[in-house]
């Protein structure tokens, strides 16, 4: 990642932001916040619980990747930052 260009890092960071935004919108949408829907069940968990757990894990994974990308992006673009 250290050798990636500023343009590539910017593009990936923007991609992560869009993905996170879509994930948040999806989690608060009627697809997830649906009353009375229990099926499909996964690992015995009702639909709402496993979908929201999966969204949470994905978001934390995005945080991990996003943190690395943002860090390297700022190293290149913001030399005055307190990194």
């Amino acid at each position: 990642m250290k050798n990636w260009s500023e343009k590539t890092l910017k593009r990936i960071w923007k991609g992560i932001l869009v993905a996170v935004l879509l994930l948040i919108v999806f989690t608060f949408s009627p697809w997830v916040l649906v009353k009375g829907k229990i099926d499909p069940i996964l690992f015995s968990m009702p639909y709402h619980l496993w979908v929201s757990i999966l969204s949470t894990i994905l978001l934390v994974v995005f945080t991990g990747i996003g943190g690395m990308v943002f860090y390297h992006l700022k190293l290149k673009t913001d030399p005055n930052a307190n990194l």
């Binding site: 989690t27 608060f28 619980l49 969204s55 949470t56």
Partner: peptide, 12 residues
């Protein structure tokens, strides 16, 4: 189980 989104997802 909506408590999950209330706290865990919000924390994420």
């Amino acid at each position: 189980v909506g408590a999950w989104i209330f706290l865990a997802f919000s924390d994420a």
